[in-house]
Design a protein around this nucleic acid. Sequence first.
DNA 1: CCAACGTCCTGCGTGC
DNA 2: TGCACGCAGGACGTTG
Length: 269
Amino acid sequence: MPELPEVESIRRMLLEKVIGKVIIGSETGLPRIIKQGELNSLIGRCFTGIERYGKYLRFTTDTDLTLYSHFRMTGTFLWLGLKEKEPTHIRARILFSDGEMQYRDTRTLGGLWITEDGQRPWKQLGPDPFSQECSAETLKKLLSGRSIPIKVALLDQAVIAGIGNIYASEALFASGIHPAQKADSLSVEELNRIIESARIILQSSIDSGGTTFRDFRLSDGKEGAFKAFLKVYGKAGEKCDVCGYNIKRIVQAQRSTFFCPVCQPELIA
DNA sequence: CCAACGTCCTGCGTGC
DNA sequence: TGCACGCAGGACGTTG
């Protein structure tokens, strides 16, 4: 499940491969993953930059055409040199003279958008965790009047962009905050702790090439190494690194949440 | 305004 | 052993 660190890792690897090269062909393996526009309208263009917005990637070109991607659960871009072959779950291909960028997506929930500049595929995106505008005061405003659990709020991309199910649990563990605590009950100090924790965890994960929990692969086909540093995600029943108590799994908004009941005490309301 | 839930999808783990 | 079933979840649309 590619979240901010995984998308960022893909971005960095692709930068070295595709920038400044002319697109000489394209192929759409599964039409419904193209959410807007036509892939072959990119032929003859070249990518001039790749930016990340939350979990979206934006590929700028030498014209007003822009390619956006979102990986959802199982998407990724693989870079293949001319002689390499690995034919599974290829949903789209963008061809260059020295190789190709393949959009792979097992569960096909992700998508690509080819738009005129200015059009964006997302509805609403909150601040990027690494940006200056991502402050405790900003989050305090965005969460005011929200009675949802803080874990569920962290998954809301309109609140903060890029955090998914893995890093939401990890950031709350590092902050010592119980995942069920109501979003608008958190103090500025607690929100600050969440932001600081998230930044450290997300940056460490980027440095490791992200987390491969099951399916995720980097653009060179390799796994991200951050799984070894996870403290709670996927560890129900295992002992907490810090206190030795058993890590618990609960379900919030139809998604698994992992936490340590001792390190993240539940507040008595 | 907000919250909750259904929807999309396929591979794999579970249980009988 | 084999097979049916349900779970995994990100974003958005719909419903309450």
